[in-house]
Design a protein around this nucleic acid. Sequence first.
DNA 1: ATTACAAATTGATACAAATCAAGAAAAGCC
DNA 2: GGCTTTTCTTGATTTGTATCAATTTGTAAT
Lengths: 235, 235
Amino acid sequence: MLTTNLNTASTPSVAHFLNSGTPGQIKIGHSFTTTGEKALESHEHLFVAGDAQSHVYQILEGVISVYELLPDGRRQIATFCYPGDLIGADRIGRFAHNAESLCKVRVRCIPLKAMDRLIATEPGFSQALLNALSTELAETRDQLLSLGRKSAREKVATFLLRISRRNEREGVDETQLHLPMTRSEIADYLGLTIETVSRNFTKLKKAGVISLPSSSQVEVHDLDRLEAFADGGEH
Amino acid sequence: MLTTNLNTASTPSVAHFLNSGTPGQIKIGHSFTTTGEKALESHEHLFVAGDAQSHVYQILEGVISVYELLPDGRRQIATFCYPGDLIGADRIGRFAHNAESLCKVRVRCIPLKAMDRLIATEPGFSQALLNALSTELAETRDQLLSLGRKSAREKVATFLLRISRRNEREGVDETQLHLPMTRSEIADYLGLTIETVSRNFTKLKKAGVISLPSSSQVEVHDLDRLEAFADGGEH
DNA sequence: ATTACAAATTGATACAAATCAAGAAAAGCC
DNA sequence: GGCTTTTCTTGATTTGTATCAATTTGTAAT
């Protein structure tokens, strides 16, 4: 996919604006607005589908899953959100999805009014928000390709690769992957069952591409081969 | 899902801004910018992944598919874009996906500079763009649920329902559906094969939910049952 | 440490959708 | 009109993943 980004590099990020005040404050124009903070235990909901959108949240610590349910309980996780990520920035009145913590989480709560004022008064903030949403849309479309057209092994490889690339962006070792989610959550993200996820971890392990020091820790031995597995280059 | 929209109803749409000038022009601030128009034959590319983004396009006539390919040729169509829709508004430097006409198409070409000036000078335009992108993100996440967790029949029913709802929004009869795309394109949108798509049209027909006056024309006899089929309520 | 409980792995079997293979219908073309 | 080509439908078989079932491993509590 796209490795360099011609646009966002030169544009300040959303975080740039949200972090410009003192802790707990956002600079709006030349004044400051106080923002709340919220702590969640593991597997608590930040919001559920149908809730009126009152705030946008920025993750300070921990990981949150955004998911949708079918009436019979089948679940599809749309995305895992990490520190720095904005959640609920897709403003359409009411939340269309559910957001649940995977572990202990702290979020900054930004009232919608504050967002609106930032958009109206802070030049560049709209642009930053548009960039963030655009990137998220492109990543979601990538995930469509995984779900619609990839085999179970390709899906698992793609998933690990995605985490590795996040590490790279964050300046963390891209071969040591920490998985804050359970096999069940990985399965619901990849459109598989926990058994199939587990079997394909084992396959990648037996192929020598990864090892599993623990069930939540993956070591990648060969990133190139992992990449080959991710889009069907190796059978 | 979400049926009422608390926010966008009160906010002018992107189209409102783009249609405010005379034909071929967009009002920016108090002046006008000329916009080009482009015509495509059936199955021509508007852009391909990797192209530098120079314009944003608004469909005036026809339908365009946005898709992604794997190296071995497997294809996933992310979305079908209809008249009024903006395409390439997810500004991330280079196009991450391909855009191909399904039939004869006319698009308005809006230079990026013009978009930037609208964002900077026209109050409300950023908000309209953010709304459009947010809606598209929510719809793409819905599609994740289809691809990851629904059976072939549920996928086909969901697809027809989506077209029916578009008709409703456009004030067109929601029981008479025109399909501008081939079975192969439907298959690549739903993550299925053409045979499976065809078989499930037949199943819905035999169940009395739809009929097929022609392969590109669907008549829905029972919207409630189609809805039930779409999320697994009927087996 | 010992016990309880939850999460992950591994194995055996079933099934939905893919693949392979013809035909039938529709769309272009001379 | 008839001929060719493409698209769609239907049938037979295979296959990858789900389901069902049993261990194993890991974690927390006492």
